[in-house]
Design a binder for these strands. Structure first.
Lengths: 339, 339
DNA sequence: TGAGCGTATGTTATCGATGCCATGAGTAAC
DNA sequence: GTTACTCATGGCATCGATAACATACGCTCA
């Protein structure tokens, strides 16, 4: 009964209520900004909170309200650390603004089992929604079960039960890049794409194909990398062996670094012999040699937009497009030698 | 009273108990792997879980057990997306393995107020521990209050009340880099450091200074960047104006890209005129031109080690060092021209 | 003036898992 | 054969916030 004994327990709403001389319910209302609270009462409650150092218990809130105010973000460990990082920041910023926490799950590889496990893990954590920034190669029944129950937004265009899709127009990126090369006077444009499992990769490739088709050019067979500089290097070696290649559209900046190195090593200069356009505009793009001409991607904004779409509620199943493909023209492109 | 009506509520432990013909308490024990459960009973429980699709409610668990099984990770939005990304992945992997979720908070800039807010936010979410991967420029009383109550590991060597420190020996990185240049025959090594608020930056600089001192060389004044390629470019322009510079130790790969470009533009070739060593070994380091000689940093491992240290409990206040600075020698370094 | 309504507040039951204590069955020891 | 102890299990209170319902007051308008 030592009233003065050190208090080990964190103060609770009841403690605040006692201090402020109101009921716990009123404290709850005051703190959540319910309209029906006397301003004076609210002031007293806030003062009490401050005085006793109250910090609200989100577990209790989650239990009684049934909502955790947490968003689960699913990422892929491989596949460009830049985009991952930027998407994460965007998601977190938008979520934080709306009072949501962000819990992450990274999957090591594009594998259905790993994906199921990650979704499960986040679902067990009680997330209120998912942002999936990984291509859903194939959607299993188990995954559908989860995304049917929990609102989901996918960032790469893959569809699953109940999920909404943040449509980023990657075809446009492909078109813009290809058109830039054609505008410079190139008569043919080769392509090194990302892995075929990625919808981004497929869409960029489609944009490239369409653009060539519109110009009446038959597209050469596309080569495929895995987003890594290393894979770009390998595909670049192949390109270097093909005569008459004057322009290549590479699906990511990191691969482009590899491609350029491979071309250089074979005596093909960029941009004098071969022009390169890529996609992403990472911080280092301006510091390649030559600096890369590239289609800017605003990953931060994509992340934020995904959260906005997720939280907006089920008012519409409408997809939404946020991209505006803008080209950063630098020094990796030039008119072909013979004009 | 329509027993057959669709069940909207998620199944709870009580439902599992009913199905398996045991008490809820036994279900709880069975699922958490308590030793005192009959294997047969356990089997029945697991079968019931499977049958009715039970998914445990982490909010309820957190409330009654007082622990959320969540780790809060604090990151800085600027300052190298590669390290951020890799640290995150490492933290998440190690946490996941131990049954912990990871909740992130990114702060936009090195600002005490932002830091306080982020820690608060995570504390409100009820995280069981912090991994702070941001330099704590100055530790405020409010921050101390939080880190005193909640176990904390800092990844960059800054100290706060009750926090343990994962000591990564960045001095060693500085020494290794500098020594490599001296071994090649350079008589003087310049340095472009990271921002002074970062302990990493300070430690690398110290390592560089010590190494020079040990060789009886007086260190030139260090230049300071902000980790970005852009800042490397600006400092590189300054370096380029100084005659007789033959070797530079740059505190990060990204800055090194900028430095090399600046030197090139001023007609100084790398590595013929100037050798460059940096730190990090990001994926693109091998694809710079020239490919960068750089000290490898295993950020993923740092992240994982931080979690291990955090979860190991308070058995010791001992710091722990996990770094082994290993040099990736590539083409940005060479003996000085005059031998 | 009293029915009706809106506002501010209190009371109680509830969310779902777990901590603590109790119980009964089996078994080893004296 | 009683004591003592372990193992498997159940009952109940509890964590802290909130939803749902209840109450009290004051105002408006017929």
């Amino acid at each position: 009964m030592t009233e003065g004994a050190a208090r080990l327990r964190q103060p609770s709403m009841a403690d605040v209520a006692r201090t402020a001389g109101v009921s716990a319910q009123t404290v709850s209302r005051a703190l959540r900004g319910s309209p029906n609270v006397n301003p004076e009462t609210k002031r007293r409650v806030l003062a009490a909170v401050d005085q006793i150092g109250y910090r609200f218990n989100s577990a209790a809130r989650a239990l009684s309200s049934g909502r955790s105010h947490t968003i689960g973000l699913v990422l892929l460990a491989s596949g460009g650390y830049y985009s991952r990082s930027a998407v994460t920041a965007g998601v977190e910023a938008a979520a934080g603004e709306a009072g949501y926490a962000v819990s992450i799950a990274t999957i090591a590889a594009l594998d259905t089992g790993l994906m199921e496990r990650s979704l499960s893990k986040l679902a067990d954590q009680g997330v209120d929604g998912f942002v999936i920034a990984v291509p859903l190669i194939s959607v299993t029944p188990k995954m559908e079960d989860i995304t049917r129950d929990i609102p989901t937004v996918t960032l790469d265009g893959s569809r699953t039960a109940g999920a909404r899709v943040l449509g980023i127009d990657q075809q446009e990126a492909g078109r813009v890049a290809t058109q830039h090369l054609l505008d410079l006077g190139h008569r043919q444009v080769w392509h090194i794409s990302g892995p075929d499992e990625w919808i981004e990769a497929r869409q960029r490739r489609q944009g490239w194909q369409e653009c060539l088709a519109a110009a009446g050019i038959e597209a050469p067979p596309p080569l495929e990398g895995d987003w890594s500089p290393d894979s770009g290097y390998r595909q670049g070696q192949i390109i270097a062996m093909i005569p008459d290649v004057t322009a290549v559209f590479v699906a990511s900046d990191e691969m482009a670094f590899g491609v350029i190195r491979a071309l250089r090593e074979r005596g093909r200069s960029v941009p004098d012999d071969v022009s390169i356009v890529s996609v992403d505009d990472i911080a280092l793009a301006a510091y390649g040699s030559p600096p890369l001409t590239t289609v800017r991607q605003d990953f931060y904004r994509y992340g934020a937009a995904a959260v906005a779409l997720l939280l907006r509620g089920d008012d519409a199943g409408v997809d939404e497009s946020v991209v505006t493909a803008s080209l950063s023209v630098r020094a990796s492109t030039a008119p072909p030698r013979s004009g």
